[in-house]
């Protein structure tokens, strides 16, 4: 609405996210190039903050928003399928499930369509780590009693399932909360740590498939359906670019900048072998059940999980 006749694109991401913002620009660039979209772009949460992006889009304040899936998966639980812990065995398989052309993604769009939502494509931000200060996490018992900062519902349920207490906290207070022991650690992807310089305080990071989220481009289904075919194709192609090239850029930044920065700061990164992973998988299986209950559609839930595991 703000630009009268120009489509409005909004995101809470700022240009300072070196790993995420390039993907946003690739997405918008491709949509402009192929579909002639003359986007009125509002980055940095200027028009709609992180909590209002999707509500604002459903109201028609914005037409396309780029948003982290974990912010909206409480309202659109089917999105949680790709956030659940220990679904795919390796990152490559998980990545194939995230492909907009995959069976899982198509199922997600079918379900979202009932709520007038459509995901065009998204960047996979990598599996989430459990970051701690005092002691490394090697077994689920190590999580017991820890106050862990989380940002979304599935993450929160995972921390609960492992015996910890999820804490919701604004990201601006994160550094001080960790430094003073208000919280004992956090669950997040690599970018959250580096963007707030948390590697200076954190001592350990345990890497496993504790969860994952994507940074997606969403639009309203009715808006999408009202566009001429060529513009719909352009948006779909832009979504594929966001997934393919955006994720590639993100992985590149993580490997060549973020991981070295975290290691250089002295954070010990812990990998778990198959035997050590098993108890975590068992503990986290209750999260899958919790998510099935939230979705309230056992058939769709099973289909989504099967499609991810077979991707």
């Amino acid at each position: 609405a703000p630009g009268a006749h120009r489509p409005v694109a909004a995101t809470y991401l700022t240009t300072s996210y070196d790993d995420l913002y390039p993907g946003v620009e690739m997405f918008l660039g491709k949509a402009r190039e192929l579909g002639g979209f003359d986007f009125d772009v509002f980055p940095s949460g200027q028009l709609l903050g992180a909590e209002e992006l999707v509500p604002g889009m459903l109201h028609g304040v914005a037409d396309v928003v780029v948003q982290t899936s974990s912010y909206v998966s409480s309202s659109f639980p089917i999105l949680g399928a790709l956030e659940l812990p220990f679904t795919a065995h390796d990152f490559a398989r998980y990545l194939r499930a995230c492909d907009p052309a995959s069976g899982a993604s198509r199922l997600i769009n079918e379900e979202l369509g009932r709520q007038n939502m459509r995901v065009l494509g998204g960047m996979a931000t990598g599996f989430e780590y459990l970051w701690t200060i005092d002691k490394p996490i090697r077994t689920p018992e190590d999580v017991r009693g820890l106050r862990m900062r989380v940002a979304g519902e599935i993450e929160g349920e995972t921390v609960k399932a492992l015996g910890g207490a999820p804490v919701f906290l604004g990201s601006a207070e994160l550094y001080q909360a960790l430094e003073r022991g208000t919280i004992d650690g956090m669950m997040s992807y690599l970018g959250t740590v580096v963007s707030r310089d948390l590697q200076e305080i954190l001592r350990y990071g345990t890497a496993a498939h504790f969860g994952a989220y994507t940074v997606d481009a969403y639009c309203r289904s009715d808006w999408y359906d009202s566009l001429p075919g060529q513009q719909r194709d352009a948006l779909d192609e832009a979504g594929r670019v966001l997934f393919r090239d955006g994720t590639a850029k993100l992985i590149d930044v993580h490997e060549h900048e973020y991981l070295p920065a975290v290691r250089k700061a002295g954070v010990e990164l812990i990998e778990l072998d198959e035997a050590r992973l098993r108890p975590f998988q068992d503990a986290a299986s209750s999260v899958h059940q919790r998510w099935r209950d939230l979705l309230g559609d056992p058939v769709a839930a099973q289909r989504a999980l099967d499609l991810i595991r077979e991707a």
Binding site: E51, V54, P55, L58, H59, S70, Y71, V72, S73, S74, S75, Q115, N116, M117, A151, G152, E153, G156, E157, K160, P166, F168
Partner: peptide, 22 residues
């Protein structure tokens, strides 16, 4: 009122393990 309709119709909530319906 329009906002109530959209939030209620789409089942929008906050994003935590305890979410207030919008």
């Amino acid at each position: 009122f329009q906002t109530v309709l959209v939030s209620y119709g789409h089942g929008l909530t906050g994003s935590g393990t305890f979410s207030v319906p919008l």
